[in-house]
Each structure stands twice: as structure tokens, then as C-alpha cells.
């Protein structure tokens, strides 16, 4: 099972061309998730609009980066796409099948093909199970191995693929380092041979030198297996390094999305611009940091119009605080979309 996905041998290197032309594996249309919040016994139930009207796609073999600050809805979006959380509105089409209309029983087959890697492996791995059991669990659930011996061989192969020794099978999560635990989390997800992997802040809990090891591992796995990744992170630098295309979220909505180099260079949305300049670079002065005023508003009570307008240096009264800007392409065919009435030129 550790064999690389077959590449057409006569095609140019997969990573150079495949993502741009490859078919879309995941299509998300008008997806929304509202969580009810009780505000006390005599008050009306309010709704947090965690995800609102999100439309996106992920191609085969492609990484879509999803960047945003805490509360932007990026983790919820990842979970709603996998139907770990039920959507309120909208559709998720996975390899041609509308997941949102499937009953739980029919969802099983799709579940195997879509897996998730969490931020903190210590809290997402069962502390009472040995690594071999954690990684082998999915093989058992989906009946992918015909017996104990085959299951163990498959577990050993996937551990090898993520760079863990076979001896790790008999270890418990707490006996491993943070980086090794995250490798177990990745092995667990990979064991059932998924096509689509949601990585939710997979390196945020790790020190930088270990981060680099895990990022390299994810890149290699993608190349070898042709995996599609939704790579969620608050760290713009990590997303920039990993993603073919990037989507920027603010208060539940995608405000800009496009090929990563274009997005990084043009930064059409004022929020994207602020995010890029808020990341310190070596040598720059503190004053050179773009200091955006205020903090993200509450998703419980989002501002009218464009949710970013109270912090936006370009906000136009009467428009930005009234009308929600649609996510649109400024240049036809550029695949670079922005939701702003006054995008940066």
C-alpha cells in the first residue's frame, strides 16, 4: 500500500502541470454553518454564522491553503466539508457525489476517501491504544486487510512511509515526541488510502525545526500518492509554502482566493494585504509592520455589509457598510477572486 500512485510515465512531472488542469475532486457550493447559541432563558436563540456562503474546489493532486485568524471559520469549514459537522446550507460534491444528500450509511464509503489530520496529536490520538492499533483501526473498520498479519504489514508499511520505525507500533502516544505523534496522526489518516486530506493546523503545535520535517513529509506524500489537500493554518508563511492556491477567510467568508503566487503578489483584498504585512520579516522595523486597527468582530453579531469594513482603511460609507461584496474575478480567467468593493489595484 506504500506504492506510489501510478503516474502516466510519458506525462511531464506531475507537480508542474497536474494541479492546474487536473479534474476537481472536491466541489463546495454555497456552504454555510450556523451554530445556535443560547443567550439566556428569556432571550431569543442567536446564531453564530461560522461559515457563510463558501464556494470553492480542490483539484486532484492540489493543495488549497485556507488561511485566517481564530474565529474566521476555517476549521469549521474543514469539518463541514468532511461532514464531521452537518452543514446548514449548501452542497459538498466529492468525486461527483453530493455528500450532503447521502444518508449516514451511504457516507461510509466516502469517509474512507476523506481523512483529517488535527493540530494536536496528543489530544486526537487515543492515549490507551498503541500506535499499531491507532493506525490499524481504520483498516479494520473499512475491512481493508484480510487478516491480522496483513493488517500489521500494512501498518508497518505506512509507518515506514511517514518515517517512523516499525518498533513504534508498540508505543503509546505519550511516549513519543510531538513530531513523532504528528507522524502517527498522518499515518492514521493515510492508512485507509484516502484521496483527500484535510490538514487542520498540522504544524502549529510544533517547534519550527520539527515543523519543517512535517511539511516536507506532507509534500512528499502528496507527490507520491497524488493526494488532494485542504491545508488550514493561521500561519500565512506555512500556507504560502505549501499551497498551490490559497483562500483567505474573514468572519466566515472567503474574501480572496487564487493561485498562491498571484495572491501573494497582488493581495487584492485589504485584509489579505494586512495579513501579509503583519508577518514580521527579518530586519524590518516594527513601524514597518502594517498595524491594522481593531480586532476581528464577533461572528455572533457581524457588522452589516462587508464584515471587514470597521477595520478597513478603504471603507466607503453607504456602500461597504451596507452591501456584501460578492467574490468575483477582476480579470477573466485568472482564477483570482476577491470580495471587495475597492480592491487594491
Amino acid at each position: 500500500m506504500s506504492e506510489p500512485a501510478p503516474h502516466p510515465s510519458d506525462a511531464p512531472p506531475a507537480e508542474a502541470t497536474a494541479p492546474r488542469r487536473a479534474p476537481q475532486l472536491v466541489q463546495v457550493e454555497g456552504l454555510a454553518k450556523f451554530f445556535p447559541v443560547s443567550r439566556g432563558p428569556f432571550r431569543k436563540t442567536a446564531f453564530v454564522h461560522a461559515v457563510e456562503d463558501v464556494t470553492l474546489y480542490v483539484r486532484r493532486g492540489e493543495t488549497l491553503g485556507l488561511v485566517g485568524e481564530s474565529g474566521s471559520g476555517k476549521s469549521t469549514l474543514g469539518r463541514v466539508i468532511l461532514r464531521l459537522v452537518e452543514p446548514t446550507l449548501g452542497r459538498v460534491i466529492f468525486d461527483g457525489v453530493d455528500l450532503t444528500r447521502l444518508r449516514e450509511a451511504d457516507l461510509r464509503a466516502a469517509r474512507r476517501r476523506m481523512q483529517i489530520v488535527f493540530q494536536d496529536p496528543l489530544s486526537s490520538l487515543n492515549p490507551r491504544l498503541q500506535v499499531g492499533e491507532i493506525v490499524g483501526e481504520g483498516l479494520e473498520i473499512f475491512r481493508l486487510a484480510s487478516g491480522r498479519a496483513e493488517r500489521e504489514a500494512m501498518v508497518a508499511a505506512v509507518l515506514d512511509e511517514v518515517g517512523l520505525p516499525r518498533a513504534a507500533m508498540a508505543r503509546y502516544p505519550h511516549e513519543l515526541s510531538g513530531g513523532q505523534r504528528q507522524r502517527v496522526g498522518i499515518a492514521r489518516a493515510l492508512a485507509v488510502r484516502p484521496d483527500f486530506l484535510v490538514c487542520d493546523e498540522p504544524v502549529s503545535a510544533l517547534d519550527v525545526s520539527v515543523q519543517a520535517q512535517i511539511l516536507n513529509l506532507l509534500s512528499d506524500l502528496q507527490d507520491d500518492r497524488g493526494l488532494s489537500l485542504l491545508f488550514i493554518s493561521h500561519d500565512l508563511r506555512v500556507v504560502e509554502h505549501m499551497a498551490h492556491r490559497t483562500a483567505v477567510m474573514y468572519l466566515g467568508r472567503i474574501v480572496e482566493m487564487g493561485p498562491t503566487p498571484d495572491l501573494a503578489e497582488k493581495r487584492l483584498h485589504p485584509y489579505t494585504r494586512a495579513l501579509f504585512t503583519a508577518v514580521p520579516t527579518r530586519g524590518g522595523g516594527v513601524r514597518a509592520l502594517n498595524v491594522l486597527q481593531g480586532e476581528p468582530p464577533s461572528a455572533l453579531d457581524p457588522p452589516p455589509g462587508c464584515a471587514f469594513h470597521p477595520r478597513c482603511p478603504k471603507a466607503e460609507p453607504g456602500r461597504c457598510d451596507v452591501e456584501i461584496p460578492p467574490l468575483r474575478e477582476l480579470v477573466g480567467g485568472s482564477h483570482h477572486r476577491v470580495a471587495c468593493w475597492h480592491p487594491e489595484a
Binding site: S209, A212, F276
Partner: peptide, 27 residues
Amino acid sequence: ARLASAPPRISPGRRADRAARRLPTIE
């Protein structure tokens, strides 16, 4: 090694070349 292992600032997006995309790590 520690400075080298951080992803570079404003890299030109995801490099096509696998080797160029690898971050130096501290084993």
C-alpha cells in the same frame, strides 16, 4: 539550521520542483 528551517518569506508560491520545495530540517 534553525533560521533555515522556517519557510522563506514571500516564496514564489509552491515551487514546481520537488527539491526546491524541500525545507532544510534539523534531524
